[in-house]
């Protein structure tokens, strides 16, 4: 049965590119939906009003920066630390934007709207393709799909979170670090320099956490980059 399916059933190679794209986008939307639910719930559980994570998701639309901003708020850090930490994390979207800009389209409205949809995930979808038309389709399908999935799930999480109470019971606080780990693993897998810098930076940040205001230890981690570059 298994061999029959393997020979007759659609595999990654025989599946039409368009259907494969739609399936992959749907899977990533589902995964991001789980993360969005936890973001909404965690944000509300940390004491923020329900509309703040919802507004943030619409306007910022970047998971890691949103989580870090909420973490800084929750730890009693000021608004400057929260915004600065999120912005530092989002500097990478500038690099992604430069890499995928051809996929946004030619008209200015398309570029201005498309720019808001540049994320780790959409960049990954575009960078995996070379044909200009395939890149454009991949960008808009993943960008619009993820924007919808992310914002709906955050709204549901924020509304349910206030009803659920203590979300730690569901272990949702472990979901975000795990998501980040899954996102950075490819970069860690193929770069020895990146691995060493990341290990040094993480050690610096963890050691500094008891002594410094929230948000600052993560920024100090960049020292890991300088340390390993020099040696």
């Amino acid at each position: 049965m298994r061999t029959v399916q393997r020979t007759l059933g659609p595999t990654d190679r025989t599946l039409p590119a368009d259907r494969r794209l739609r399936r992959d986008v749907a899977l990533v939307c589902l995964a991001d939906g789980v993360v969005g639910l936890s973001f909404g719930a965690v944000a509300v559980a940390s004491g923020l009003p329900w509309w703040l994570p919802v507004l943030m998701s619409l306007l910022v639309f970047a998971g890691s920066a949103q989580f870090s901003a909420v973490a800084v708020f929750a730890a009693g850090g000021g608004p400057v630390a929260a915004a600065a930490t999120g912005l530092l994390l989002n500097t990478r979207t500038a690099a992604f934007s430069l890499a995928v800009t051809d996929a946004l389209g030619r008209s200015w409205p398309a570029r201005l709207v498309g720019a808001h949809l540049v994320t780790d995930e959409t960049a990954a979808f575009v960078l995996a393709r070379t044909d200009p038309e395939a890149r454009r389709r991949a960008f808009w399908l993943s960008g619009l799909g993820l924007f919808a999935a992310w914002n709906v799930s955050v709204l549901v999480g924020a509304l349910a979170g206030s009803a659920l109470g203590d979300t730690d019971r569901f272990g949702l606080d472990a979901a975000f670090p795990a998501v980040l780990l899954a996102l950075v693993l490819p970069a860690l897998r193929d770069g020895r320099g990146a691995r060493r810098a990341a290990a040094a930076g993480a050690a610096i940040a963890v050691v500094a956490t008891p002594f410094l205001p929230a948000g600052v230890p993560v920024l100090l981690a960049l020292g890991g980059l300088a340390l390993t570059r020099r040696s």
């Binding site: 870090s68 994390l89 670090p177 795990a178 810098a197 960049l222």
Partner: peptide
Amino acid sequence: TVLLVALLAT
């Protein structure tokens, strides 16, 4: 990458 790893570690 360094920022993300530090964030997930803390």
